[in-house]
Amino acid sequence: MTLSLEHSVDTKKALPTKKKSKRSPKARQEERAFWIFILPWLIGLICFTGGPIVASLFLSFTDYNIVSSPVWVGLGNYINLFTDFLVMKSLAATAYYALLAVPFTIILGLLLAILLNQKVKGQAFFRTAFYAPSIIAGVSVAFLWSWLLNPDFGVVNSLLKQVFGIDGPNWFNSTHWVIPSMALMQLTAIGGTMVIFLASLQQLPKELYEAASLDGARGWAKFIHITVPLISPVILFNTIIAIISSFQVFTQAYVITQGGPDWHSYFYVYYLFDTAFSQYRMGYASALAWVLFIIIFALTMLSLWISRRLVYYEYDNK
């Protein structure tokens, strides 16, 4: 009680002094400039991101086909999700893809970054060459892969036949191989992951490695006991980003397989897209989108929780 009285007295005392404090014209001018420059972005955020997010939450509780007004259905759309055969199919396809693509992206991205961190001749060229494919548009990459993995004329199957004497699989046309094929496509998309790993590797203090060498540690031991712990926050970051993008996978299935064969590449976002822009069931599509958001959010939280004991933050020990 005493404290709060004192506090209120203090506030009252402070107010007049606050009123009196005048900012300089330059400070006000800077503030005005700040608002003018940030205004387009703020308008964009409110109108084109925030607005649709709020609208989609509202629409997820309605039946809405664009042409007629939305009709309130309460939790109807969310309840229907649980009995929808295609929700289960698409979630299973997406989860399977994530299960293959996330470790593949992380492991390969890290290995590539380690290789590109070596001081060899043509280092800049290799870095550019390995990063370049990741800036090519997704549709072009999808077409490229559909050719590479063509069962009859593709380079991959020809090599398998000529070098190893084995008949390659049907890749995108096989229910067993379609998801591994799409995970394999990550080979041309790991540039971003690789660059982040590379940047973190370049920050590692050399003295730790020198000290470890003096203690007799060799390459593998140094990697496991120095490199991995030091870049563990980056591994976590890349893992979370990979999980998010895996659950949003769409382009390759849309371009190459149209969700087939037998729904095996009918990813969750593909179903969401069809529901919204082929069936025009915007309410149900919004519910699908919110469920995807919850799944991704939950997986991110789970990753952070699991990582508590696995990730080493240098600043904790300072």
Partner: peptide, 22 residues
């Protein structure tokens, strides 16, 4: 109406049969 959806419901399983996957 909605034939784009209906034909997808027909095509996916039956093409899987034509592909020897079902």
């Amino acid at each position: 109406k909605d034939w784009a959806t209906l034909i997808q419901y027909i095509n996916q399983p039956i093409n899987a049969y034509y592909g020897g996957n079902k």
